[in-house]
C-alpha cells in the first residue's frame, strides 16, 4: 500500500471496526483513483453493509462538513492520503 497511516479524527466505534474501516479505505484507494470519491465511498459502504448489516453511509472528499444522526457505536471520521472519510450507520433497514 502506498498510502501513509490513517489518522482517526473522531469515532464512536469499536477498535476492531475502526481498523476494518481504515483497511477498507486503504483497499479502495488501491483500486480507484484518488479523485473517484464516489467509487471509493461505494466500496467501503458495500463492505460494511455486507459484514455488519445494511444501512451504512459513506462520504469521501477533501472539502465537506456535515451533520447527521448515527446509530450507537457506528461512527468514524478519519483522514487517509489527501482525503477525509466519514462512515456511519443511519439505520438498519
Amino acid at each position: 500500500m502506498l498510502e501513509g497511516k490513517a489518522m482517526v479524527k473522531e469515532t464512536d466505534m469499536s477498535t476492531k471496526m475502526q481498523i476494518h474501516a481504515m483497511a477498507s479505505a486503504s483497499q479502495a484507494l488501491d483500486l480507484y483513483d484518488v479523485y473517484d470519491c464516489i467509487s471509493i465511498a461505494a466500496h467501503i459502504k458495500k463492505e460494511f453493509d455486507s459484514v455488519y448489516g445494511n444501512g451504512w453511509q459513506c462520504v469521501v472528499g477533501s472539502n465537506f462538513g456535515c451533520y447527521f444522526t448515527h446509530s450507537s457505536g457506528t461512527f468514524i471520521y478519519f483522514a487517509l492520503a489527501t482525503l477525509n472519510f466519514l462512515i456511519f450507520k443511519g439505520t438498519s433497514s
Binding site: C37, I38, I40, G90
Partner: peptide, 25 residues
C-alpha cells in the same frame, strides 16, 4: 438537518462541501 428533522421527522443527514463523493442508502 435541524429544519428537516423538526419539520419532517428524524432522521435526516446533510453533507455540504465543494469536493466530496458519497454512497448512501
Amino acid at each position: 438537518k435541524k429544519e428537516f428533522d423538526s419539520s419532517y421527522g428524524p432522521a435526516w443527514h446533510c453533507i455540504v462541501g465543494t469536493s466530496f463523493g458519497s454512497y448512501v442508502t
